[in-house]
Nucleic acid binder design. Structure first.
Lengths: 274, 274
DNA sequence: CGACTCGTGAACGAGGTGTGACCGGGCGGT
DNA sequence: ACCGCCCGGTCACACCTCGTTCACGAGTCG
């Protein structure tokens, strides 16, 4: 699980047909795209800096520079999707435009919905190459989670994780500082609701703690909130944390020789369940 | 990718409009393209084996299976350019087709020249995606991959590789350090979507491992990530690193004494179990 | 002090992976 | 055109990992 969020498409529209633009703008906003509208040709450098996915351009706006402009930008930005729109056009014009590097060509009047669909089609392939997943690393305290390598690094030491372990630590690290309840964790990592009495989350927390502690014994990362769930936060080991079950060194602690004499700390304001 | 048929574009045309086809065929020959014309839908597997660059299809020929067929082939052959041609069509139909994966949509009567230009535009965009990972040699650890020679060298010794093996090691080496999932690998090496249950990637990984290990036994290059895929990285052989905790530190195991300065308690003696 | 929650180790079963063998088809040599 | 080799792909089987569950002890709260 842990699906990524797709970045909104970013496009530029070069046109002066205010009526058309008005309708189009509304639809673009409906799609959640980011867009910029301009009444004249933008220099190639400007287009580069805008990090566009696609460009919609009315050739009529460009006048007799149209062809050279088209050629320039398609050569300068080969990865940019270019959809040309014109009032009227002949077959030979369309052929010329497409040969010069345009990806699609529509004739007005055209339905905004179709224009959007064609822009999507043009952009689609470029995105298909980019693994559109959450490949961005997450850092939380001493921990670094690298989705592209399916492993985590703690204080420079690499920790090999299985799929579930990785998704769990990823989720926790993303929600650093927050207390996540078991049902929530299970839902987001496993993808479906947790069955009553399922202890899987606990078991995986244990495995993670084991591996993390091994990589950096001086830190504790996953803290238990009794009756609620878990919270991720890098804290030095050995200090008693209010609201968190003091585990670690489970073998010995029972012997009655508790290391930390710290008095009873104020209870966690959080741990209340109706 | 393996479909390295350079210049002559190869396309298939699914249509029954003999008049149109006649004119189109003449133009296709004029362009020097290789083409195949059929009056009915071709199964996805057939299209795969034809190593097509693009597909031109008249939806009318397909009847009411049109949408499913379109969806099937665009999912199975994501890299294939698809241009749909219809006699009449509404905006919503065109939008639907484009959303289902078609790259372009023309309405008859359409000029063959424009159709050809649009096919070119579609293919151009696809090829521009693929270019950029060719020609330049790749070095990763002791391994050197030379795309220009279709050869790989390990520690100076050349390793004889078949085409698939070469494409695979090339891809892996380019993505050094990253975990690539089987589906991605298959998609990028074979050029189309992996069928469910296909083990080809595993088999070729095995072949590669054999040849690489024979060339340099002291290194391991391809690492398995259980349930995910493979990761390329040059690491010394002999160290057990089976996807679990990096227990690659026999020295470290004794950590029982050092870490915790305060508490007595020998920490959970970890690994060994009775 | 009793009921519930959580930590921990072990063990099992499903299914993912390694591996050798086999087969059909394409390509080059003759 | 014929033939043989090589390569790509499939299959069956063995092995192994990992997710899940269980039991029990420790910890926490009322």
């Amino acid at each position: 699980m842990l699906s990524a969020h797709d970045n909104p498409l970013q496009i530029a529209v070069i046109d002066t047909d205010t009526g058309f633009l008005q309708v189009l703008a509304k639809r673009l906003e409906g799609m959640g795209w980011r867009y910029r509208i301009t009444g004249g040709p933008l220099p190639a450098d400007a287009l580069v800096s805008m990090r566009l996915d696609a460009l919609v351009v009315d050739l009529a706006v460009l006048g007799h520079q149209a062809w050279t402009y088209l050629e320039t930008i398609t050569q300068r930005l080969p990865g940019l999707g270019v959809v040309v729109v014109t009032g009227r056009s002949s077959v030979s014009q369309r052929v010329r435009g497409l040969r010069l590097g345009a990806d699609d060509w529509m004739t007005k009047p055209c339905h905004p919905e179709e224009l959007i669909a064609r822009v999507e089609a043009v952009v689609r392939r470029r995105q298909s190459d980019e693994t559109g997943e959450d490949a961005s690393p997450v850092e939380a305290g001493e921990l670094e989670v690298r989705p592209d390598q399916f492993q985590a690094f703690v204080s420079g030491a690499s920790v090999e994780l299985t799929r579930r372990e990785f998704e769990l630590i990823h989720l926790l690290a993303l929600a650093e500082g927050q207390v996540l309840q078991r049902e929530d964790i299970y839902q987001r990592v496993w993808g479906y609701a947790m069955a009553h009495g399922d202890r899987s989350v606990d078991v995986f927390v244990r495995k993670l703690r084991q591996k993390l502690e091994r990589a950096s014994p001086q830190w504790r990362y996953i803290h238990t909130h009794f009756g609620v769930g878990y919270r991720f936060a890098a804290e030095p080991a050995g200090e008693a944390e209010p609201g968190a079950v003091a585990e670690t060194d489970p073998v010995e602690v029972s012997a009655g020789e508790m290391a930390v004499p710290v008095v009873s700390a104020p209870p966690p304001a959080a741990a209340v369940h109706a």
